[in-house]
Design a protein around this nucleic acid. Structure first.
Length: 581
DNA sequence: GCCGTTTTCGGCCCGACTGTTTTCAGTCG
């Protein structure tokens, strides 16, 4: 059975092929929109198909539904096969090169028989491109540069890397350009996606040219790709590119809304504006008489169409407009709601700090409690806790709590463990020990390549274990390095909801697992969530921010998150038999 | 190819920057 990802890729390929062939704009756009929609879908397409709901999906009509159905049933698509026969797959690859779009790709294929990145490079090096009408030496150079860039920038940045880079760039820009009144990052970074392609920056200033000049002369900038009076694109020494847009302060709101996206959200928003007699752009709302309504903040942008403010993390055209109209937008969890971090390690296993030091760091972050959850001994985990050492650790936790109480602090440390889930779904520590601990996280660390059926049964068995409170990083994915386990998530979420087991949004920068679409579906099915740093050092408690952003993208409210509960409420929940939670 | 608070046909988001074509198409976000 094809995954949503594979089917989305097929639709994107169809859209690209149709566009290169010069098909009607709105025909290929409809394929692209459906591809985008499928990529963000919370449930497997087969589930919608089984319920006969394909045509209820936005942008899917009879034709699209039949194509999805054919892909699900046969694993291939006749229509797509025929397209591929007309247009070699290598031609679609050309679209990955910056500055090569569908028109250019089509001409390169038809006029120079270029069918791969390799043959494109040869043709450019031999100076054959400039023979084409409209192509000069400069264009040829740009294409060669684009090909080189493609070879280096093959993976997207982690959210954590992009945040750090953007914040440094903003600081540098503000220092170099006094004319900047306000500046922030926008794009997929502001929406909190788990990986980021390039950095989008927005600055408010009355002197756009000065701000653009300041950006292009920053030491961190390797190359200027384009630069006008209002926007510029630069390539950074560290590899990624950054786009800067400069607008007058009076247009800050409309520009920020425009530049934050997503594209799908913007299209839907602009269609709404149109229905109310406006055209909307980064400059504001233009009425039919030509007058312009400027918006200094985003609240005014949404208010113009009678909508409440929609937080950036929700702007994916995944139901946020309907919720906004109905007044049912969620009150998203915030950093200030977080009272605890319930998954972290100390020198008792593979962490780098003592329990007391981790507690101090947690106190500094404003938490009221935390759980220390060192690894249980199993297979390769070095220094994992044996039952004996776990009991010794309990004494240290008690000492730390006694010292905290003696110093007048109300902060408390819960004693837990992160126990391994064996390939069969058993736990790697004895029940007698687990029963004595305050909190138990069970996580998969080994045998992550099991068959779907086995992997699913394994996780459900752990979820249903009477002493498991949280399942940590449920899929085991590592961003850019390892896909998660092949899991049937619906029954897993149902089991978690029914058994009163929380599922984790692990905030580790390369985990973010569950990711946002999965966490959103888990929430819909009634699962309680935990958002935890999995810190191995005091500084890493700051990773909570990444988990929080991911949770917000999943429409998570504080009520549904263990970490947002008071210590009393959490203790009460932990003390209850699992079936009664 | 889809779709409906100007509905079942006629629309479909918007604008800046670049190169090269002296008036704009192509690309991008």
């Amino acid at each position: 059975m094809l995954t949503n990802r594979e089917i989305a890729d097929t639709f994107h390929a169809i859209a690209d092929a149709l566009e290169i062939q010069g098909e009607d704009r709105y025909r290929f756009l409809s394929y692209r929109r459906v591809g985008d929609m499928i990529a963000e879908l919370p449930e497997a397409l087969s589930a919608y198909a089984a319920r006969g709901e394909l045509e209820d999906l936005p942008g899917v009509g009879k034709v699209m539904a039949a194509k999805i159905d054919e892909l699900l049933r046969t694993g291939q698509l006749d229509f797509y096969e025929r397209l591929q026969a007309e247009l070699p797959a290598g031609v679609l690859e050309l679209l990955k090169v910056p500055d090569i779009g569908p028109r250019t790709a089509g001409r390169l294929y038809r006029e120079l028989s270029i069918t791969s990145l390799e043959s494109l490079r040869e043709a450019a090096e031999q100076g054959r491109l400039r023979g084409l009408k409209g192509f000069g030496a400069k264009t040829e150079q740009k294409i060669l540069q684009g090909l080189a860039q493609l070879a280096t920038a093959d993976t997207r940045m982690l959210l954590s890397q992009a945040l750090e880079l953007a914040e440094r760039l903003l600081a540098d820009l503000k220092a170099a350009a006094p004319a900047v009144w306000q500046a922030t990052y926008a794009g997929s970074l502001r929406r909190g996606r788990s990986t980021i392609g390039d950095i989008d920056l927005l600055a408010a200033s009355e002197d756009g040219a000065a701000v653009i000049a300041a950006l292009t002369s920053l030491p961190s900038v390797a190359r200027v790709d384009s630069a006008g009076d209002l926007k510029a694109t630069v390539i950074l020494h560290s590899g990624p590119s950054a786009d800067l847009l400069v607008v007058p302060p009076a247009r800050w709101g409309s520009a920020l809304q425009h530049f934050t996206g997503s594209q799908a959200h913007n299209i839907a928003f602009r269609e709404l504006a149109k229905a109310q007699g406006f055209t909307f752009s980064e400059n504001g709302f233009r009425a039919s008489d030509g007058s312009l309504v400027e918006c200094a903040d985003e609240i005014a942008v949404y208010a113009q169409l009678g909508l409440p403010y929609i937080p950036p993390e929700l702007r994916e055209d995944q139901g946020e407009f309907a919720a906004a109209r109905a007044g049912t937008l969620p009150t998203l969890v915030e950093l200030a709601d977080m009272r605890a971090d319930l998954h972290m390690h100390s020198t008792w296993s593979d962490g780098h700090a003592a329990i007391a030091a981790m507690a101090q760091a947690a106190i500094t972050r404003g938490y009221s409690h935390m759980a220390i959850t060192d690894h249980g001994a199993y297979l390769g985990v070095t220094g994992g806790l044996t039952p004996e050492r776990a009991l010794q650790q309990a004494e240290e936790v008690a000492r730390v709590n006694a010292e905290l109480a003696a110093s007048g602090s109300n902060f408390r440390v819960l004693h837990g463990v992160e126990v391994d889930i064996t390939p069969e779904g058993r736990l790697a520590l004895p029940d007698e020990l687990l029963a004595q601990l305050d909190i138990v996280i069970a996580s998969p660390h080994v045998s992550l390549r099991q068959e779907r059926e086995k992997a699913t049964a394994r996780l459900i068995r752990a979820i249903e274990h009477p002493y498991v409170d949280i399942v940590g990083h449920p899929t085991g994915r590592l961003i850019n390095r390892r896909a998660g386990s092949d899991l049937d998530l619906e029954p897993i979420f149902q089991a978690a909801a029914a058994s009163g087991t929380a599922l984790e949004i692990n905030a580790g920068p390369d985990r973010l697992d569950l990711d946002a679409p999965l966490a959103r579906r888990a929430l819909e099915l009634g699962v309680t969530l935990a958002i935890d740093s999995d810190a191995h050092a005091p500084d890493e408690l700051a990773w909570m921010r990444l988990g929080l952003i991911t949770a917000r993208r999943a429409w998570v409210t504080p009520e549904r998150v263990l970490n947002c509960w008071s210590l009393e409420r959490l203790r009460e929940w932990l003390a209850r038999p699992k079936g009664a939670r």
